[in-house]
Simulated scan of single mutants.
Amino acid sequence: MSDSEEVQTRVEDGVLIVTINRPEAKNAMNQAAAQGIAAAMDRLESESELRVAILTGAGGTFCSGMDLKGFLRGERPTVEGRGFGGITQWSPKKPLIAAVDGYALAGGMELAMACDLIVANRGAKFGIPEAKRGLAAGAGGLIRLPRQIPSRIAMELALTGDFIDAERAYALGFINDLTDGPAIEGAKALARRIADNGPLAVIASKGVIRDSGTWSDEEMWDKQQGYIANVFSSADAREGALAFAEKRKPNWTGA
């Protein structure tokens, strides 16, 4: 996959780093950037050596939301079947971490909440201010946010459009980790901890946690089995046990 002007990628130790590259527009999401993120996720899925991805923004801002100039031209920053920014209605099997500096607002906050984990600089700001512009947070803000923080706080943020800082977001459990420096450094450290683990186990664990919220008590054990059965019968499971017994680092093959 070749990078576009709007989205740049690089690989570090099995981690795919995806950067929204529109700093002059505070990384506002346009159609080209959405397509670039979707293409990066396809690469994450298709290349076995890639274990985790990080989504971040250039120039000290994560994403300021939808490009309103593009919106006025009739452009929608979505990808068919995947939603806003290429990820709000679809998730890769492998983990995706948001590294947030500056502002994650409107669609930018919705991009962050679509990721599996969030690392943010202490100075970061979050919000879904769509109501201030006569719009609604339709890319997941109204659906996902009450599942990720207390529902009354989610209601307050949606109805007032007010921002919250990273410290409060962390206290609410919305953020996994805070950094004093660039969020990407904390995100890379978290990604390395994930990439050290068995890839099949990571994919299965993400899948169960992501999907099990809709499972009933009667069906949850059978449904979980569909995700984890191949993990326990894999060569990696044997390698993990053997490496533990031999007191060495496992050599994962993803099989």
Rank of each mutant, 00 (worst) to 15 (best):
M1W: 11
E6C: 08
L16W: 08
T19I: 14
R22K: 15
R22G: 09
A33L: 04
G36A: 11
G36S: 10
A39N: 13
D42M: 10
S46Y: 03
S46G: 09
S48H: 09
G57M: 09
F62Q: 05
C63V: 06
G65L: 06
K69Q: 14
G70C: 05
L72H: 12
R73P: 00
R76C: 08
V79H: 07
V79R: 07
G85P: 06
K93V: 01
K94C: 00
A98G: 06
G102F: 00
D116T: 09
L117V: 11
R122A: 11
A124Q: 08
A131M: 14
G134Q: 11
L142A: 14
R147V: 00
P150R: 13
R152N: 12
L157K: 06
L157C: 09
A158H: 07
T160S: 15
F163R: 14
G173C: 12
I175S: 10
I175H: 09
L178V: 10
R192A: 13
A195V: 01
D196C: 10
L200W: 00
R210A: 08
S212I: 03
G213D: 08
M220Y: 10
D222M: 10
Q224N: 07
Y227M: 01
Y227H: 14
Y227Q: 03
S234D: 01
D236S: 00
A237I: 00
G240T: 03
L242S: 13
T253I: 08
G254S: 03
